[in-house]
């Protein structure tokens, strides 16, 4: 399970997740972490590195105390490529695993670097932003990334049902569901 910690600006997220972050921020950081620690499932924390890079040790420590298994930063590879090694090893020293986020516009050489750092999983977001339905060939993308990463590969960002099967056929180990879940919540479990 991925839990997003509200950032100052969710630059690579679409409107639905941005709005959900606004709602979550109103709850306050401390209360959020309390709620998170009550979640009884393997959980990864997601937030933008931009927000926490100045206090990374403290942030990672708070994740460990709340019972998270790992950390994911959507902007690590895109905006902090030079810090990849350092951040990955800080995450490991905090007793957490690295889930590294990559996207179609990540060059092959950089994907290989990310793959080496990803002791948790490699997360491929197949669209440019969460929850924004642009057409992509999920099969082509997963095939490309499957060839660049030997470990666990999770695929997400607006996957429709037929795309989930395409992803799995092309070699993905799992899929992520975000926006669809958030949109379904107000409708209720049967909705």
């Amino acid at each position: 399970m991925e839990l997003g910690i509200p950032p100052r600006f969710a630059k690579y997220d679409g409107p639905v997740i941005r709005r959900s972050y606004e709602a979550a921020s109103a709850i306050g950081r401390e209360r959020l972490m309390e709620l998170a620690s009550e979640v009884d499932a393997e959980k990864y924390a997601l937030t933008y590195l931009d927000d926490v890079i100045g206090r990374l040790d403290e942030y990672l420590d708070s994740l460990r105390r709340a019972g998270f298994s790992g950390a994911l930063f959507p902007d690590l590879v895109i905006d902090f490529r030079g810090e990849l090694g350092r951040v990955a090893s800080l995450v490991r020293s905090a007793g957490l695993r690295n889930a590294i986020f990559v996207s179609p516009s990540t060059p092959d050489a950089v994907v290989r670097e990310a793959s080496a750092a990803a002791d948790g999983f490699l997360y491929l977001g197949v669209r440019p932003a969460t929850g924004v339905p642009v057409p992509v060939s999920v099969e082509s993308l997963v095939r490309r990334f499957r060839g660049l990463h030997g470990g666990e590969l999770i695929v997400g960002f607006g996957l429709r049902a037929e795309e989930v099967s395409a992803a799995v056929r092309a070699g993905a180990d799992g899929v992520a569901v975000g926006t669809a879940l958030l949109e379904a919540l107000p409708r209720g479990v049967g909705g």
Binding site: G14, P15, S103, S105, T106, D108, P128, A129, V134
Partner: peptide, 23 residues
């Protein structure tokens, strides 16, 4: 793009929009 030396930042929706310009 797969052969660039650095990652290509994705297109981005500006802050504050109700709808996605990417969409």
């Amino acid at each position: 793009v797969p052969d660039l030396p650095e990652p290509l930042p994705p297109p981005m929706d500006p802050p504050g929009g109700a709808d996605s310009s990417i969409g």
